[in-house]
Write a protein that binds this DNA or RNA. Structure first.
Length: 375
RNA sequence: GGUGAGGUUCCCGAGCGGCCAAAGGGAGCAGACUGUAAAUCUGCCGGCGUAGCCUUCGAUGGUUCGAAUCCAUCCCUCACCA
């Protein structure tokens, strides 16, 4: 993997770049749709091909539990398994282990947890998680980290941060010893919850380990938006400027734009796909609830200025009907549209950075998605 | 024509003397969702001046301090038999 900066905004820290991987180039800033179990929920591979995201995200935890490593190994890795030829980033499973397991025991060595599928016991170590991601064949791997909930007290946050750093060091070592950095790269993750001193310290110590890229974790987990903004604005500038910066789990359009303005390059979130399935759609005029009665007979397109096939072809009235009727097509169309929105949203941001008009874009979107969306 | 079962708030459906404006679904309406245990979840869902009052459980008339619940008559459904 190789990261090159192409342009920097004059008024903000926003930047445009390129991550070149062995499977293709990722133009940043980029949004990565989430294909947790090897598929973007509700979408066919054809939709995914048509949307043509430079990179998508999948998940170590879920793939390890099902279908399991044997199946993935036999298939020749995740790309071959799902017939997807563009880059894939995998989350390490740290987030899942800590957020959805009712049983997990952390020790210095790793974390023991119960499978959400069948209750069986498993043990993840930083090294183990790299081995799994090796089998998956991810282009960008993530280190095992301890993601904390919000709220959390400073003491427990620090413990999680120290553990994350210790695991990061081991991960960095194991990666350096056995991985080809051109083929599979590895990102470290900053933790520290909403504590400025911890964020600062964690960022500095993580940077000393010299990862190919850096992620900011533990944000957009329910904290007030001021804290999200404070931590983002504090952390991003402390990360090495010549490496990609990835805001994990972020987020909504305005949160993304805010972070881009502070120098972030990569994003992922379940938000556009999940809210699509639940009837909320992004448009150039703000968020809309397609199930609302006000669209009952609305013959207009979902978003007049969107170029996706759903907007080209279907009316709001029809999409509302499909949603209410519980048709599977509603999930497909809504998801396709929201992801198309995210993709063009990011392309627009990138183009603006390159053209030197990012400030204007920030203002325009802020007016539409401002307070409402920036939670 | 005979026998049996039944008619409950938009729909289905519980209730079978007071704790019933009436369980539970569904539909409808509004909202939430952030490194996906989510096609999920939450709230509202007879009316109003909302710790109270008014209207409502096929219709009418009774019994009772009190009826969706008991009785009588009528209307209407459904099932089986002729």
């Amino acid at each position: 993997m190789k990261f090159t900066l192409i342009a920097q905004d004059a008024g903000t820290a926003a930047r445009a770049g390129e991550i070149v991987t062995s499977r293709g180039t990722v133009r940043t800033p980029v949004f990565m749709p989430v294909a947790t179990r090897g598929a973007i929920r509700a979408l066919s591979g054809r939709d995914v091909d048509e949307l043509a995201f430079d990179i998508i995200l999948s998940n170590t935890y879920h793939l390890y539990l099902r279908p399991g490593l044997e199946v993935l190994r036999e298939a020749g890795g995740l790309h071959a398994f799902m017939r997807h030829h563009r880059p894939i980033l995998t989350d390490s499973g740290g987030f899942q282990v800590f957020s959805l397991s009712d049983f997990c025991r952390v020790s210095e060595d790793g974390v023991e947890f119960r499978s959400t599928h069948d209750g069986s016991l498993h043990f993840f170590t930083p090294e183990k998680v790299l081995e799994i991601q090796e089998v998956i064949g991810s282009d960008i791997m993530m280190v095992l980290d301890q993601c904390t909930d919000y709220p959390i007290d400073a003491k427990r946050s620090r413990e999680a941060m120290e553990r994350t750093l210790a695991w990061a060091a081991r991960s960095r070592l194991a990666w350096g010893e056995r991985f080809d950095p051109e083929v599979q790269s590895l990102f470290g993750i900053v933790q520290g919850s909403v504590f400025a001193d911890q964020r600062r310290e964690c960022t500095g110590r993580l940077a000393e380990l010299s990862f190919p890229g850096y992620a900011v974790g533990g944000l957009s987990v329910g904290e007030p938006k001021e804290l999200y903004r404070d931590m983002t604005a504090l952390t991003l500038p402390l990360l090495p400027p010549d490496r990609p910066r990835y805001m994990m789990g972020v987020g909504s359009p305005m949160e993304i734009l805010f972070a881009v303005a502070h120098g972030a390059d990569m994003f992922d979130s379940v938000m556009p796909t999940r809210i699509a399935r639940n009837g909320t759609l992004y448009t150039s005029e703000g968020r809309i609830h397609i199930k609302s009665s006000r669209f009952r007979t609305d013959q207009g397109p979902l978003d007049p200025s969107c170029s996706c096939y759903v907007c080209a072809r279907y009316s709001r009235s029809y999409l509302r009907h499909l949603y209410h009727a519980g048709e599977i097509a509603a999930l497909i169309y809504n998801t396709h549209h929201n992801l198309h929105f995210m993709k063009s949203f990011m392309e627009e941001a990138r183009a603006a950075i390159i053209a030197g008009t990012f400030g204007g874009l920030l203002e325009r979107w802020g007016a539409l998605y401002g307070e409402d969306d920036a939670r």
